[in-house]
């Protein structure tokens, strides 16, 4: 093949097979990768405003318990997760609320309001939080989480903004 532009029949077949094979590989390979990593590219569940109870039912200074469930669809299966917390009304102003998440910041057990000790107690490792959510005793590394985005709906319900994930 010295000095000539012609390629032999053999080489032509080799090159053609290589190109066609490569094209098929790309046409199927790229969608396959997309198929594999698809779940990683998805957004989590949807954010939502969730009603936790009527504002007028909450007594000033008394932690008002609430709970709600979120359903997450994973592929062909639905998983529901429960969430809860306490709303503490401080005055007549609906913005003057402290809404605590009852998930213990230590290892995620659920804390309960204990009126006699005037504190939230965690049944798992004896953690103790004040009415404001501050750590009074036990192993938690930080105060209780706070739902700081909330609003009063037109029909008098307090709604919190729930961020998925």
């Amino acid at each position: 093949m010295s000095g000539s532009n012609e390629i032999s029949r053999r080489d032509f077949i080799k090159v053609t097979t290589g190109i066609v094979g490569g094209l098929i590989g790309v046409a199927i390979g790229l969608p396959s990768i997309s198929y594999l990593i698809d779940p990683a590219l998805r957004e989590g569940g949807k954010d939502a405003w969730i009603s936790i109870g009527k504002f007028e039912d909450m007594q000033i200074g008394m932690p008002y318990p609430f709970s709600f469930t979120r359903v997450q669809v994973n592929g062909w299966e639905r998983t529901s997760s429960s969430f809860g917390g306490y709303a503490i009304r401080k005055s007549d102003d609906s913005k003057d609320l402290l809404i605590l998440n009852s998930r213990c910041t230590h290892l995620a057990c659920t804390v309960n309001w204990h009126a006699e000790s005037d504190a939230f107690l965690c049944p798992c490792h004896d953690a103790k939080f004040s009415k404001e959510g501050q750590v009074l005793d036990g192993p938690p590394p930080r105060p209780l989480d706070v739902y700081d985005e909330f609003r009063l709906s037109e029909d008098g319900h307090i709604e919190i903004f729930f961020k998925a994930g």
């Binding site: 969608p31 396959s32 997309s34 198929y35 698809d38 779940p39 590219l41 592929g75 062909w76």
Partner: peptide, 22 residues
Amino acid sequence: HAYDSIQYIMEGVAYGWLIRGI
């Protein structure tokens, strides 16, 4: 879940229809 998982492959996953079609 067999039926649902195949529905999911066909409609939920990127290019699932292609892989299953082939």
